[in-house]
């Protein structure tokens, strides 16, 4: 916002004292109420406003504290934002960012826990990014702001407290590149959004059994860096995608299919993990079962590597357990 006066940020409660978990703190004071403002509770029209503003030369950032609320904005996102460049023969550009927060339920249940980014991956014309480290969170956000197409920027609330190196000066992380976050030989783990953390933990558990897992963070779900994942699978022969979402028609289905299309080896073994195929329950006993975690991921990867010959699930380790954030938000 400092570098480009055309950047504007708005959304429900971006200007209150909580400042969207601090992510918008002080922006009103610094850039003024015209460029930074809280909105009426009108997700549909405000998404339309973002689009119209983008057409007029503004670069809007529209903030939503829950992905669930974006269901009220689907028309504008899918029918207008995604389509405009194409259906107007390349004449319209929509440089807009939609920040959409997702999270584990913390008991908030059915309508405050959904990820749903696969809805947006499905639609040509939208980009989708789900960074998992501070470095990528900043670099991808700046990329998204500078991008001339609509970008869905997915933030997982548990990750908001994740620490890591991040340069103070502006920099970009380009769209469509994945990172290998742990090198390994026996199995490829692709962890999406918060499940990246669980995959990294799982790789540590797996070391106990002598299995070395290559962990990949796709970062961008569209454009998707399938080459990096396929390259890894060529080496390991096994692919487990751990999604922070339901499995059916999800990011995991997409990634596995694209890898299998690209790597013509019928011996490759694949697996998917994600939400249980039910609505997210608030009861801790059920919620625990609803999500994959490092131990269940490790167990599944072990099965893949050992051809289900023996089963194993690691003992819980305190050093791999730390959770940086608890509710109530």
């Amino acid at each position: 916002m400092g570098a480009d006066p055309s950047v504007m940020l708005f959304g429900l409660d971006v200007d209150d004292h909580k400042a969207i978990i601090g992510t918008t703190r002080g922006l009103v004071e610094k850039y003024g109420r015209e460029r930074v403002f809280g909105t009426p509770l009108s997700e549909d029209a405000m998404t339309g406003v973002a689009i119209g503003a983008a057409l007029s030369g503004i670069r809007p950032i529209h903030v939503h504290i829950r992905m669930d609320f974006l269901m009220l904005a689907m028309n504008q996102l899918v029918n207008v934002a995604a389509k405009s460049r194409y259906m107007f023969g390349g004449q319209e550009s929509l440089p807009m960012v939609v920040r959409a927060m997702i999270g584990k339920s913390w008991g908030q249940g059915a309508q405050h826990s959904q990820s749903l980014y696969s809805f947006f991956m499905h639609v040509p014309g939208l980009k989708v990014v789900a960074p998992t480290t501070p470095y990528d969170a900043k670099g991808c956000l700046i990329s998204a702001i500078r991008d001339n197409d609509p970008v869905m920027y997915v933030e997982h609330r548990l990750l908001h407290y994740q620490k890591g190196p991040v340069p103070t000066e502006p920099f970009t992380v380009p769209a469509g590149k994945a990172r290998i976050t742990n090198a390994g030989d026996d199995v490829t783990l692709v962890g999406i959004s918060y499940m990246q953390v669980e995959c990294l933990r799982a790789s540590k558990y797996l070391l106990e059994t002598g299995i070395s897992a290559e962990v990949i963070d796709p970062i961008w779900l569209n454009p998707l860096d399938i080459d990096t994942i396929a390259e890894s699978v060529r080496k390991t022969g096994r692919l487990l995608v751990v999604d922070n979402d339901w499995l059916s028609c999800g990011a995991g289905a997409e990634i596995i299919t694209q890898v299998l299309e690209q790597v013509p080896d019928r011996h490759i073994q694949v697996g998917r993990m994600g939400f249980a195929q039910c609505t997210c329950p608030p009861a801790p006993s059920l919620e625990e079962l609803f999500y994959p975690n490092a131990r269940t991921v490790a167990a599944r990867a072990f099965d893949l590597v050992r051809d289900n010959a023996v089963t194993w699930i690691p003992e819980e380790r305190a050093d791999l357990q730390e959770v940086e954030f608890k509710g109530p938000f």
Partner: peptide, 17 residues
Amino acid sequence: TGGHGSGDGRGPIRDAI
């Protein structure tokens, strides 16, 4: 960074955003 919150960085993701 390992994703474990133990990095030597300057801040968490919310600050990066």
